[in-house]
């Protein structure tokens, strides 16, 4: 997409402004070397059959930080994070090569227990995906899978998860209603509650707000801000304002490669690569 230069510069300024605005309210340790690496990806290649979709992705994701993954459609953003919990393995012909270390453990190794991995690495999808059961049961789903707990504790944990996902006030009177009855934005927060109920370590969010309205999106973004205290969050988005607003680090993907990775501030204000600058200023994408 081409834009008149004037307009794209404005967008660039406003994005940088967004970063500034947020930095004044939150203090983040600015020295990356001091932060713990949660996920360490080395030379990750990914194939759909014979088609290679990711090329030598290497990236470190820091614990309790929000890392945004941006880039044009089809550049491999979703493909990349779908390797972290090996959800791609549901499909034949898809395979990943390379190394993904979660706290030093090799995610792609055959010895990795898939069930345990997916308990530790939760995922939120683009389309809200409530299960065909009540609101309560939706949140209790993972708890019932992974823990043997009594009814009272189950109820407590469901309540806690719903509170942390900022949905409790809206649903506390109708926990026995089907999850599918909620609005799109509520459904997405229900999915977040479902994911965090099992106390994961990492939350993968694959364009979580692209299918919902702006007000609901704002709620999800506030939520991401609050959740990073407990979780390491990876956020795929093609909304650059969103990346600028909520993330601490940003990775720019293009054609299956990581073009640039750095602090969100730096990526949006002083991108090192021409391609990154062109993308965030709207010259293509």
């Amino acid at each position: 997409m081409m834009m008149p230069a004037e307009k794209s510069d404005n967008l660039f300024c406003s994005l940088a402004g967004l970063v500034d605005e947020r930095k004044t309210s939150t203090t983040v340790d600015s020295d990356p070397s001091k932060q713990a690496v949660k996920i360490s990806v080395r030379n990750l290649n990914f194939f759909y059959g014979h088609h290679q979709a990711l090329f030598d992705n290497t990236i470190d994701l820091f614990a309790n930080q929000v890392t945004a993954i941006i880039g044009p459609s089809g550049c491999g953003k979703s493909t990349h994070i779908r390797t972290y919990n090996r959800i791609f393995e549901l499909y034949r012909n898809q395979k990943a090569q390379g190394q993904i270390l979660l706290d030093g453990e090799d995610v792609l190794s055959p010895e990795m227990n898939l069930i345990d991995l997916r308990k530790r690495v939760g995922m939120i999808f683009q389309k809200p995906s409530p299960f065909p059961m009540t609101i309560f049961e939706n949140v209790a789903y993972g708890l019932r899978l992974h823990y043997r707990i009594g009814r009272n504790e189950l109820a407590d944990r469901v309540e806690m998860a719903l509170k942390r996902s900022a949905l409790w006030d809206e649903v506390q009177d109708k926990l026995d209603r089907p999850g599918t009855e909620l609005s799109g934005g509520q459904q997405q927060r229900l999915c977040i509650a479902r994911a965090i109920a099992v106390e994961p370590e990492v939350l993968l969010m694959d364009e979580p707000s692209s299918a919902i309205d702006p007000v609901a999106t704002a709620k999800i973004e506030d939520l991401i801000e609050a959740l990073k205290e407990k979780y390491t969050i990876v956020l795929v988005t093609h909304n650059m304002q969103q990346a600028a607003r909520v993330s601490d680090y940003t990775a720019f993907f293009y054609n299956g490669s990581i073009v640039e990775f750095g602090r969100t501030e730096q990526i949006f204000k002083k991108p090192a690569m021409k391609q990154t600058e062109d993308y965030i200023t709207g010259r293509f994408g």
């Binding site: 919990n85 959800i87 549901l90 898939l114 069930i115 345990d116 991995l117 997916r118 308990k119 939760g122 995922m123 999808f125 683009q126 389309k127 995906s129 299960f131 789903y141 993972g142 899978l145 992974h146 999915c191 479902r194 994911a195 099992v198």
Partner: peptide
């Protein structure tokens, strides 16, 4: 069944 529902369920660590 939409794939995303199945993925979401597998993604929770279900067999």
């Amino acid at each position: 069944i939409p794939n995303v529902v199945k993925e979401a369920s597998h993604g929770m660590g279900a067999t």
